[in-house]
Amino acid sequence: MARTAVRDVVIWVKHIHGGDVSQRVLGLRGGETVDLVVDGVRGAWRKMDDGRDGRPTTGIRPIGRMQDFWRELYSSRRGDVVTIELPQAEDEGASERSRLIFAPLARTQEARKSALEALLSLRGDSYRNTGVVITRDDMHDRELDREGL
């Protein structure tokens, strides 16, 4: 079991002490995710992207519901030491599912082109006005609004 201090809105590898969590995080590429159990709460963390000059960034950022949990820890228990560990073996199926959900985006020209085509294909699928005019009061059927109260 490793420990880390709540010092920032992200967790830096140099602040993780003990256990094999830091090696697991260092083995990730930018954008990949890992499930961690922090202070008894399991959630997904995303490895920060490498810098513009190519240097690796050795931090992980909470995502999803873990972001709310870590933000609460940061505001209420800043400076405290919390436990951080990899999930147990029976929980690995959930880790694989989150890896599929939060897979890093491919940053190739083909991926950008297909994403743009998918976005542009939605062009005609938006809301169409049928010409019917309805007031707010009629829409919500608010008797008190009609009376001016």
Rank of each mutant, 00 (worst) to 15 (best):
A2F: 01
A5P: 00
A5W: 09
V6G: 01
V6N: 03
R7C: 08
D8A: 13
V10F: 10
I11P: 01
V13G: 02
K14G: 06
H15R: 07
G18P: 00
G19Y: 00
V21H: 04
S22L: 03
Q23F: 06
V25R: 05
L36A: 07
V38L: 05
V41C: 05
R42Q: 10
G43Y: 01
G43M: 00
G43K: 01
W45Y: 06
W45I: 02
R46G: 00
R46S: 02
D49T: 07
D50N: 13
D53P: 10
T57E: 06
I60L: 04
I63T: 05
Q67E: 14
L73N: 03
S75V: 11
S75I: 08
R77N: 09
D80S: 15
I84E: 02
A94Y: 11
S95Y: 04
A103D: 07
L105E: 13
A106Q: 15
T108D: 13
T108Y: 13
R112D: 12
R112M: 09
A115C: 10
L116D: 11
L116Q: 14
A118K: 15
L122V: 06
G124A: 12
D125K: 15
Y127W: 13
R128Y: 12
V133T: 15
T135G: 15
D137R: 10
D141I: 04
L144R: 14
D145A: 15
G148E: 11
G148W: 06
